[in-house]
Design a protein around this nucleic acid. Sequence first.
DNA 1: CGGGGCCGTGAGGGAAGCGTGAGGAAGCCC
DNA 2: GGGCTTCCTCACGCTTCCCTCACGGCCCCG
Lengths: 226, 226
Amino acid sequence: MKLLVADDDPQLVRALRITLAAHGYDVIAAPDGAAAIAAAAQTHPDIVLLDLGMPKLDGIAVIEALRGWSDVPILVVSGRTGSADKVEALDAGADDYVTKPFQIDELLARLRALARRRSGASAESSVVFGEVEVDLAAKAVTRSGSRVHLTPTEWQILEHLARHPGALVTRQELLREIWGTEQVTDTGYLRLYLSQLRKKLERTPSAPEHLLTEQGMGYRLVLDPA
Amino acid sequence: MKLLVADDDPQLVRALRITLAAHGYDVIAAPDGAAAIAAAAQTHPDIVLLDLGMPKLDGIAVIEALRGWSDVPILVVSGRTGSADKVEALDAGADDYVTKPFQIDELLARLRALARRRSGASAESSVVFGEVEVDLAAKAVTRSGSRVHLTPTEWQILEHLARHPGALVTRQELLREIWGTEQVTDTGYLRLYLSQLRKKLERTPSAPEHLLTEQGMGYRLVLDPA
DNA sequence: CGGGGCCGTGAGGGAAGCGTGAGGAAGCCC
DNA sequence: GGGCTTCCTCACGCTTCCCTCACGGCCCCG
């Protein structure tokens, strides 16, 4: 379970890292808002623990930026106790709000509650199409039983498609999800990676059965071509 | 949005009912734990607002009972401020925990956060007419179970019609929605795309049953021609 | 009953989008 | 530092799609 901790207080980050690591979390730290957004785009954490009072970028702005392309649960940890601050953060897209100082066991319980609800939403851990199996938990792909090696970018694209089987995934959605918020100018590298994925996964790459193109819109992973 | 309020304090329930109703919620009240479970089973509320200190059945027991068959978001409202109580309730399956006395605007914001996450998880939006099914989330169209391929423009028109089933959609509305411009210079391409949609979706394209033309006005998607 | 406007439908040209091969630059592990 | 993997650019051919033109039919109205 990956956790992104965005806070500008090094002492608090260190204490949280120790405690959270002891409870089985994999902690990624970011000292300011801009770093938090970049880290989220790069590492795709399961939960974000966000401080409101950070330099470079306000916490609310971070929430709005994340919500532009991600549904990751956001738990706000803030020293501001006013209800107006809570309302603003929650309405911006945060899922929970805890005021400092907080009890660590309460924080852990709220993290568990967020993780529980999140796992319930995406229960499927393995997607099968044709002779290919995609194990989302293990980040492994097999074809006819033997393992297939994918580059990180190829995997990210395939993962996003496999998490929405049958759904059309917009080109912009893929670009935002993989390269972050900016860079919506596709000069053609998405086509390249799709081509490589087809070469590795499709029976006849020139006539794909599962990794389909929807001209002018995006791509679609079809599990059963029948 | 239906809301189940389980609390044994009549005054608090009355105050909540007034406030929540003013914000568009449909409030169902239950004075004890047993009544709360019964009401939840009968009315299927969208969110449960639960007091921990109730007669007949402890709040924790209510959470466990509900979680046996329902994923409804549960917001606990309790006078107990100890972190042990919060941990117990959250680990039993509650989604959030607010201590009395609480700010009403904070409670409303937390309700909105729960409602938002819930609606995101179950975004099952699909429109059915005749032998055709339009899945708005997946941007997919099936006819008698087999997939139908639409071009981007065809999809945009069908999507707009399907989002307002039964309603008359003006030609200008479609032009503005799809081509962005206020151009009323329809040289006839709307007719062309409607023709292609009928060819792909209607049983007899020359005598459409669902994609109807309103002369001089626009088009209308009729789900049930009976 | 006749005419004018509105609508449906077929064919085709031009343009935009897509697949794919080759190749250079940057990062990573020994 | 060397070799390997990976990311990204460029260019070219091909498919698909958008839009125009043209013609014929239907409805409403005079």
